[in-house]
Design a binder for these strands. Structure first.
Lengths: 218, 218
DNA sequence: CAATATAATGACTATCAGTCACTTTGTGAA
DNA sequence: TTCACAAAGTGACTGATAGTCATTATATTG
């Protein structure tokens, strides 16, 4: 009988509901202020039950990061279906990343949280952490793919190593996007206010700069 | 009598000692695991006394960020004294940043912490937070200065806005440097391991890429 | 329907940030 | 030097909250 299977699916569904609730609580109270009691109330479960579905609070945050990285990957995958030069695809992915952070800042916060986890044991044993890792890998592969396309169509200098370049683009964009995140979320910074910069145009400018650097020289 | 002044200095000294202790505790136990009791023990003060010098635990972390940003600024200021083309100076600052994070990862962690603070009230009232802000501004001015030098000596394309470009360089480098930090600190990432990349060379490559992008075209 | 397994519960414990009534130390006037 | 007062220091206490576990409720199955 498919009881076994049904149970597994129901458990997965419940996990998703708990993550939904966590998202809702964070929307109301902020990321760091979320408590397990809040999530319990929001889900209408008891606190103890939460721990049947998630090892600890970290695991819930990780669940958010996993969901976020999945959503981001979906956007990137879509970009790859567009028929344009590789360099354009990279540009488009940058735009998507920025939009993503603006529309769903909670997930970006969860990424930051994920990266702050130092507990190796936890990172290697938890299946959600594993999926985060896989998602990061998938994300990297999309960027690499776009670069390879660009190298073939001549829009990107093929003397670079695509995989390494992908890491560079990913990491540096992350830095830029984080600035966007900081501006959006509470963290006020007079420096950023002063410099008359809407992030949008700065990001465009940055991608242009990268493009210049990557472009094939004659 | 200079009693007033002496007291002020002693208070400042004590604050520094507490930050020293916090650093030591973090070295032993990790950033997030530091407790006020730990710091109290390390300083051989009572917990209550800590609160006479720091409003709360956040303020101690902030103290670390302030110290860190001061040290980083010192490095950047030094670079500016070198007589080389602007583009070279930017390159050198990148190297310094990377070294800094490798040698003093605790401060970089404190930067991340600082950025995660959302409490506007606290950020605007706390004098240490103010100094962090000032340090960030100073840091930005060093990068801007190097860019301006580069624009004058022709090593950097002067069609960019120096201030805006400085933010872009700062933010993107931050992303790269963070990868270095992740590799060093506990956070294991199979993705980063797989791609045969020592950060050193990737960072060099990135600065080269930026350089290409910023370089004056004929 | 009874026996057993699985899921859910919430009172409880441990930890830790932050407080405050009390004690100790320092200062300056008599 | 001594006393009164102020400033600095203390640690037991409180409140919040992550995580546990003995107990209860529900589902499954022979």
């Amino acid at each position: 009988m498919g009881t076994e299977e049904r149970k597994r699916r129901e458990k997965e569904k419940r996990r998703e509901l708990i993550i939904d609730a966590a998202e809702e609580v964070i929307r109301k109270k902020g990321f760091e202020s979320m408590t397990m009691d809040d999530v319990a109330e929001e889900t209408e479960l008891s606190k103890g039950t939460l721990y049947l579905y998630f090892k600890n609070k970290s695991a819930i945050y990780l669940g958010l990061a996993e969901r976020g990285s999945r959503l981001l990957n979906r956007r990137f995958a879509k970009v790859l279906t567009i028929d344009k030069p590789g360099l354009q695809l990279i540009r488009q992915m940058g735009e998507e990343y920025l939009d993503f952070v603006r529309e769903q800042p909670i997930y970006f916060h969860a990424f930051i949280y994920y990266e702050s986890i130092q507990d190796l044991e936890f990172l290697q044993s938890d299946p959600i952490a594993k999926r985060c890792e896989e998602n990061a890998r998938e994300n990297h592969s999309y960027i690499t793919r776009a670069l390879q396309i660009g190298m073939q169509d001549g829009s990107i200098d093929d003397s670079y190593d695509a995989k390494q370049l992908a890491v560079m683009i990913w990491a540096s964009s992350r830095g830029l996007v984080q600035v966007a995140y900081l501006k959006n979320s509470g963290h006020h910074s007079a420096l950023l206010d002063d410099i008359e910069l809407d992030i949008e145009s700065m990001f465009k400018s940055f991608i242009h700069l990268l493009g210049e650097g990557m472009a094939k020289k004659e």
